[in-house]
């Protein structure tokens, strides 16, 4: 099939960007979306033009490196899938496809479709972990965890940190991302000692990074390639309220 792509090109963070139009020719329906971009890039390089920069790594939907907003949808039209797992059979011959980077103040563009998502790392740095020094752990079965809680924690822990929640959120909020981490830790007995400080610090960092406020539109959950539930945001909200009331700070 042949497609027309309108792709965001931007040399670096400080340059102005604009859309460029490219033809993707002889694309097979079995190719993945990124393989289609690979093919376009091969042609661009041979023609002496700068290839389109886009982040990708594992190409099997788990590393969270790939991004892209495709025709207005984070990770493209399929739900529960990352861009690398999107296949061209989802498109038809002659389609026009608009490809944009994830857009948020907290995700500045690095080049073309590549964005800087280190704000997510800084959120985790501020408390998204359990402080246990290597070697100081107790016997693994010393603390039983109800299976239901363990399963809910795993549901939340499935987050791949791709940022689609932010990209899809009308407010560029990262509440689903924080909610998932806060929930995972709050549901486990190991997470209790730091429960209060964790949520307070993570939300503070979230706000300082310039993410927006959640208005419960649930676009994040629908865009999330791991289908993480907004119940995790609710848990975050009540953890935050509780911590605000009980903290001694």
């Amino acid at each position: 099939m042949n497609l027309t792509l309108r792709v965001w090109r931007q040399k670096d963070a400080s340059s102005e960007g604009q859309f460029e139009t490219y033809e993707a020719q002889d694309i097979s329906p079995d190719q993945s979306f990124l393989e289609m971009l690979d093919a376009v890039n091969e042609d661009l390089i041979v023609a002496g033009k700068a290839p389109i920069a886009f982040d990708h790594d594992c190409r099997e939907g788990i590393c969270g490196t790939c991004s892209l907003v495709i025709d207005g949808r984070a990770h493209g039209p399929d739900s529960g899938k990352t861009t690398c797992s999107l296949h061209m059979r989802r498109f038809s011959d002659g389609d026009n496809i608009v490809i944009e980077p994830f857009r948020a103040k907290a995700f500045p563009v690095v080049r073309d479709l590549v964005t800087d998502r280190s704000s997510f790392d800084r959120i985790i740095q501020s408390g998204g972990y359990i402080s246990v020094k290597t070697g100081s752990a107790v016997e693994a079965n010393a603390m039983p965890v109800p299976k239901e809680n363990s399963d809910l924690a795993m549901d939340a822990a499935a987050c791949i940190g791709c940022g689609a929640c932010v990209a899809a959120c009308p407010n560029a909020s990262a509440m689903l991302f924080i909610g998932a981490k806060v929930s995972q830790m709050a549901l486990l007995p190991q997470g209790q000692p730091e429960r209060e400080q964790r949520v307070l610090k993570m939300v503070d960092t979230h706000d300082a990074e310039g993410f927006g406020n959640c208005t419960n539109e649930y676009e994040c959950m629908k865009a999330c390639p791991k289908e993480i539930d907004v119940a995790n945001i609710a848990r975050l909200n009540r953890e935050y309220l509780k911590a605000t009331i009980t903290t001694r700070d």
């Binding site: 100081s136 752990a137 693994a140 039983p144 363990s150 822990a157």
Partner: peptide, 22 residues
Amino acid sequence: NNIIDQCVAQGVPFAREYGGNL
């Protein structure tokens, strides 16, 4: 064995039995 202890303490949600054990 120490690895499993370490990871559980970090909050790694390993699969569990209904009784709460790994």
